[in-house]
């Protein structure tokens, strides 16, 4: 196993994934210790070997679907919006820069929970439209996140040497082609770790959409707690659900970084 890692190359990545696995093991060890130390635990609520436990567990796991659907849709939209906000922010026109700046400052100032409430309860009334819980969640998360994506893109694009623009001009590339073929491919490689971070953040923030009734992981756990009265076990499962999700995603991001490096 470690042989493959050594071959697949940098030592740091092997060390990193060892670190990752180490911390996961440590976390699980703590959990089991806790379990052993107390007789307050009643794992029967989610014991898959019993019928009711299996039903409960399945109920909880179903939350993955919406957590993922919500986060993936929201991040896709927010990356595009973030880029569209970042580009005018880099223009030489003070007007365009101003618009970009105002957007970032405004959106960044609104707490995510407040954004969710406003988009779900306020926006439909203001715009005279109806929004499903899912789309309200997507819009709120994407809006909030887009300000941060814009800042990430701006920094990434600014980090590209100005010689790259000059070389592009010298072979008569248009602005769009310069961005598309020269600047963005290099910038995206550089900001990939930051984008990955942002996606992990998004996965966690999606739990807030539970307040408007979205049936994602957190909402499922809340609902089960109300009927089963075992918050300790159910929320512990919830913690583990997020942990597994985020470890998998962060491994995927690392893999992608290595592929594109």
């Amino acid at each position: 196993m470690s042989v493959c890692e050594e071959i697949s190359h940098p030592q740091t990545s092997a060390a990193r994934s060892r670190g990752l696995r180490g911390s996961a093991l440590l976390f699980l060890a703590c959990l089991f210790l806790l379990t052993g130390c107390s007789d307050e635990w009643g794992w029967y609520v989610v014991d898959p070997s019993t019928k009711s436990g299996a039903v409960n567990l399945k109920f909880l796991l179903q939350g993955y679907w919406y957590t993922l659907a919500l986060s993936l849709t929201a991040i896709a939209i927010s990356v595009v919006v973030g880029l569209l906000v970042a580009l005018p922010g880099l223009s030489s026109s003070p007007w365009l820069r101003g618009i970009s700046r105002v957007y970032v400052e405004l959106v960044r100032a609104v707490p995510i929970l407040v954004m969710i409430l406003w988009v779900y309860y306020g926006l439909p009334q203001m715009a005279g439209i109806s929004l499903s819980v899912f789309w309200a969640g997507v819009i709120a998360l994407a809006l909030s996140d887009s300000a941060f994506e814009a800042e990430i893109f701006r920094a990434g694009i600014q980090s590209i040497d100005k010689g790259q623009y000059e070389a592009s001009h010298s072979i008569a590339l248009s602005y769009t082609d310069t961005m598309r073929y020269v600047i963005l491919p290099q910038a995206i490689r550089r900001i990939l770790p930051a984008l990955g971070n942002q996606f992990i953040y998004m996965l966690k923030m999606s739990s807030l959409v539970s307040v408007i009734g979205m049936q994602e992981l957190t909402r499922k756990a809340n609902e089960l707690v109300v009927t089963e009265y075992r918050p300790l076990e159910i929320y512990t499962v919830l913690v583990l659900e997020y942990l597994v999700l985020i470890l998998v995603v962060s491994a995927l991001v690392r893999w992608l970084e290595r592929r594109l490096a």
Binding site: D161, G163, Q164, A167, S170, Q186, R189
Partner: peptide, 13 residues
Amino acid sequence: VGMVFQQFNLFPH
């Protein structure tokens, strides 16, 4: 008009 720069400025990717 073609131009050649001191720092080459090739597209590294």
